[in-house]
Design a protein around this nucleic acid. Structure first.
Lengths: 201, 201
DNA sequence: ACTAGAATGTGTACACCGCTCACATTAAGA
DNA sequence: TCTTAATGTGAGCGGTGTACACATTCTAGT
């Protein structure tokens, strides 16, 4: 079942295509993610990937699904048992880190709405949602989990996008992290240095 | 200076291209935005647009810049003089509405980081940022404007993306708006029905 | 072991795309 | 009017998605 070099059959072309797609994505950006380039990199004819992916969109969806799973793992690893708002901020920083370290993958993941027909992709995306919901419930047991999860995910996701668009990494990575942490803490009422928000309540 | 039908010179091909691009975007989605399709729709040869746009990227940037300007206007029109957190929530709803009503344009606007070389685009994007900052300063005069603007824009932008990805429009548009309003109010301490957040402080 | 059929990979072909270049047409200014 | 710059045309190159016919190999059932 391992790849066999030199033989007519590849061994595990599907996995090789995904691997090639990931490499292309990080090396040359999202525009370089073509089925032909993937086939070339996998050392196979241009049409061979069609045996494993219905079309380009299916390949992209599979890559995105992989990204969703990795993101969920990444978030779960950020804090073993989040309880305080600071813990949630740590998870938020991890979310943004994920985006910054795999910008092209992150953009692919959110470039288009999840096609309900792509079951693997929608399931993986749902796992991320569950992960966020779990953290929010742990940190704010008394709150409406649905509403607060929406708000928190929205906040974190938006921060990641703004960061990716170069909106606030002027002062280096550490400062950007602090900015994310500060934004989360400010909006969630646990500002470390005081955000001024309290003065308004 | 108005378009002349039948003549060799078009009159105002640049504007026609932008118009055609906008139409294509909303009719057939972002994938349909090709220079050749734009040229066809403008009734002109495939290479004519190159006299007005250096490459496809330049055309896309021009469309995005237009989108940024319209978004800024849209936000400014949402509330004449925002003072209370509820006013800010209204602006947030307007932001999300903009995204939902022009999904393809919105995605084009944020599909890639602003190229600093695209002056028109970066300027238009900065105008949106200024608009958000102004609203935040008006509503929370005592807060650190930079940090809070980041947080608010991130929240609103993330909510728009989640909405675009079909994360919470199950119960219709009105319910989705309420969800946005609720998220903003919850995080900004003006929850209309009580979010449970206060119980945690 | 043999063989039929299912999987999987190859090659060709077509339409579309971005983009370059030489050329045609027109508008504007000296 | 004549020159020149601006603007649009057409052919053409390499790349891309994908359909189709064909080749090769794996797997079962005999």
């Amino acid at each position: 079942m391992t790849p066999q070099t030199g033989s007519y059959h590849h061994g595990d072309l599907r996995a090789s295509c995904l691997r090639a797609a990931r490499d292309l994505l990080e090396e040359d950006g999202g525009a370089a993610l073509s089925l032909r380039a993937v086939a070339r990199r996998a050392g196979v004819s241009a049409t061979a990937p069609y045996r494993h992916f219905a079309d380009r969109e299916a390949l992209v969806s599979a890559v995105a699904a992989q990204g969703y799973r990795e993101l969920a793992d990444h978030l779960a690893a950020a804090h073993p048992a989040p309880r305080a708002p600071e813990d949630l901020a740590a998870v938020a920083v991890a979310y943004v880190h994920f985006a910054v370290e795999r910008p092209a993958l992150f953009r692919v993941m959110f470039a288009e709405p999840c096609d309900p027909a792509a079951a693997e992709r929608t399931a993986a995306a749902a796992a991320v949602w569950d992960c966020v919901g779990r953290v929010v419930r742990d940190v704010f047991p008394g709150a409406d989990p649905e509403a607060l999860s929406t708000a928190v995910w929205g906040l974190v996701h938006g921060l990641a996008f703004l960061r990716l668009d170069g909106k606030f990494h002027a002062d280096g990575a550490a400062a950007a992290d602090a900015r994310v942490r500060g934004a989360v803490c400010a909006l969630l009422g646990a500002a470390p240095g005081g955000s001024g928000l309290e003065a308004e309540g």
